[in-house]
Nucleic acid binder design. Structure first.
Lengths: 423, 423
DNA sequence: ACAGTTTCCCGTAAATGC
DNA sequence: TGCATTTACGGGAAACTG
């Protein structure tokens, strides 16, 4: 909470969504000799930005002027906190938008300026400062793109406000980037990525060169180009997993039960010598935000078989928590009694020992009813059978005497009125 | 589409949500002799309402004036359509709100006025009309209450704008009300209510008097008082079922496979002589928006047993469509092979014959994965185990020479900035 | 036509007012 | 304090716009 008495910029670049409130606080670092006058601060969005440098322009919808006040808890500093600030896009200032469409919206950097002007003993002093770069989005669906920008900026520059950063963004070394990725998981999901997990991610980005930790990753490869053969970029994929963990897998992830980032080859190598029924948890590489389990079995003639279930995504997981899925998962083969093939979490932890504490509750006993729950089930050899007014009135001209009639009968009619709630 | 040339009010009372766009159209019923001038129409919310008559006041946030135009498709009538109208509440005009808190917000009726003024051959004519009563809500959670008001108003008065209607709302006879309720289902769910279903609803409202179709229902009993022993009113309960049907049960409802409104006594009477495995579908009376099935079985010593599953609500149904639940439902008794107890839809339709066409899903064959689905299951004899900066600076006074230093170092600092997307 | 972007608005949760 | 009502905003989908 304590800060030195020099101008610093403790806040990180931020993402602001239009129409959603945000807050900012400014503090005067030097005590003023005489403070018996009001010091007004005005905040402006993209104050000095020449139009044309950005393709979109925004303004602060709400009150943008406030009087500085002595902080209650500190030793007399002047400060002011703007609350309930809200951004709105300026529409069509003159003709069309300003910028060439080179940058995507989440690469476009903006800033918030603060100004005050006051007079001390006859001398007029202007104060001004401005925030670190800001990304402005209009929908939460743009949040992953915004985070990518913030990460890349923080990782690769110390400049306080290089708004042209994404005009020619530098590359990152894998050693730098992997550290940041791990930090994302440790910050938002409570546990970072270990060496094996990072190795798999490195291989995903540039094949088998993962050992070269000084390999360079371009901004485009990180978050703009799609992964070959996939309809999403590396970061979109990774972020979808981060979101899945945050919403549905937090305890399981924090217990380190999700290996998560393992190639299919590695997975088989790990499982092949283990007890039948040994399984591990892995994130889907083909779909956004999915998790699957793979278990090993021995066939009748002793050969090793691997099975992976169709990945669970947020929709399924919000119907049934993941630990319960592991507890209840059943495979039914041609009418035989269903059985749960998951016995040991890799390498050899009995399933209930690992997940027992994470199992969710069970039947609500609303009396007259039989409790019911959903269980996940796979049929091994199923024959999938899919079933799939017309307006008539006297004509003109009018005689003078017709006025009364007109005044009598002329009136409006509400022809239709609709709202989403009508009919 | 065609309308007579007299003022009528074809639109029903509506529900408008603040901040959500609505549309209205006004038409001039008499052709004007000379139309080579512009006729402006202005729309005003609650124009003539003395403040104090309503507890909330609203205004039209968007443009409320528009020029009348000749309708393209008709024979030359003047009309104007207001689009993108939006309502906002006036806050604290003078002190506190106007009204005694007698009425709830969904009982408070408002209106929209339209005015125009024009001059023909030296005579000035004022036109004005106003809509049928409107209910204004601020959240969709108030929609059921709003609908109740609209229904009651339509049912019990022909007055075009009796804004005081809910000051002393009349009672409805059961024969009137039941017709309206059935109409709700037929309008919004495609199939109305039959006599048996209405009888059950009547009994719910006033015990066993259901046969007296001239029994009177008060507004309060219909939608304000809770059903004895339940935390919701009759209409809230019924509307929750209507919503459930609209979102999750439409095909099943339209095929008439949901008996739905049956008392438990009636249910048993109907099922007791039927084949074991005969079931019927019934809405929950104890919880909002739930549906259950009850099936009949014969015990070992021949006695009749009835079972009902815990009702399915929208959350469960959005994880698994209802027809699939019926297809896949299993009961497992003490480790025995699970079996689907549902065989015949009452009275005797084989389950798959009734629901076959409505079965949904089936395995998505994303190759390397084993397809998996959720199935609903009940354990009959389960032992439920629940687990569940400090700011220091030199003191005044200043010497003249210190000004340069001050001007050099004095500046702002952005102390904190936060948005929901920060950190 | 299409993709990137914004708008719209439901539905849940939280905040606010009475 | 509790209840009624409004606000906030994520998230899915539709509308927009070059």
């Amino acid at each position: 909470e304590k800060q030195p008495c020099m101008p610093t910029h403790p806040q990180k670049p931020l993402i602001i969504k239009t129409g959603v409130q945000f807050t900012t606080k400014v503090r005067l670092l030097v005590k003023l000799p005489e403070v018996d006058y009001q010091l007004k601060v005005k905040t402006t969005f993209d104050k000095d930005l020449p139009p044309g440098r950005v393709s979109r322009q925004f303004f602060i919808l709400t009150n943008n002027t406030k009087v500085m006040d002595i902080e209650d808890y500190s030793n007399g500093c002047l400060s002011v906190e703007f609350r309930h600030l809200q951004l709105k896009e300026k529409k069509y200032i003159n003709g069309t938008k300003g910028n060439e469409g080179l940058l995507s919206v989440t690469e476009e950097l903006h800033s918030l300026s603060f100004e005050a002007c006051f007079t001390v003993q006859g001398l007029t002093i202007d104060l001004e400062t401005c925030s670190l770069p800001l990304v402005v989005i209009s929908n939460v669906s743009q949040l992953p793109g915004g985070w990518a920008s913030v990460m890349w900026y923080n990782l690769l520059t110390d400049e306080p406000r290089n708004l042209a950063f994404f005009g020619n963004p530098p590359r990152a070394s894998w050693s730098q980037l992997s550290e940041v990725l791990s930090w994302q998981f440790s910050t938002f999901a409570g546990r970072g990525l270990n060496k094996e997990q990072l190795t798999m991610l490195g291989e995903k980005l540039f094949g088998q060169h993962a050992s070269c930790s000084d390999y360079q990753v371009s901004w485009s490869k990180f978050s703009k180009e799609n992964i070959p053969g996939k309809p999403f970029s590396f970061w979109m994929w990774l972020d979808s997993i981060l979101e899945l963990i945050k919403k549905h897998l937090l305890p399981v992830w924090n217990e380190n039960y999700i290996m998560g980032f393992v190639s299919k080859e590695m997975e088989r190598a790990l499982l092949k010598d283990k007890e039948p029924g040994t399984f591990l948890l892995r994130f889907s590489e083909s779909h956004l935000g999915g998790i699957t389990f793979t278990w090993v079995e021995h066939g009748d003639n002793g050969e090793v078989k691997f099975n992976s279930v169709e990945p669970y995504t947020k929709n399924r997981l919000s119907a049934l928590p993941f630990a319960d899925i592991i507890r209840d998962y059943k495979v039914i083969s041609d009418g035989v009694v269903p059985e749960n093939p998951l016995k040991f979490l890799y390498p050899d932890i009995p399933k209930d020992e690992a997940f027992g504490r994470l199992y969710n509750s069970q039947p609500s006993k609303v009396h007259p009813y039989i409790p019911s729950t959903l269980i996940p089930i796979s049929e091994m050899r199923s024959n999938a059978s899919t079933t799939p007014r017309s307006c008539q009135s006297p004509e003109p001209p009018m005689t003078p005497g017709e006025f009364d009639m007109l005044n009598e009968h002329l009136c409006f009619d509400i022809d239709t009125m609709s709202s989403p709630y009508s009919e």
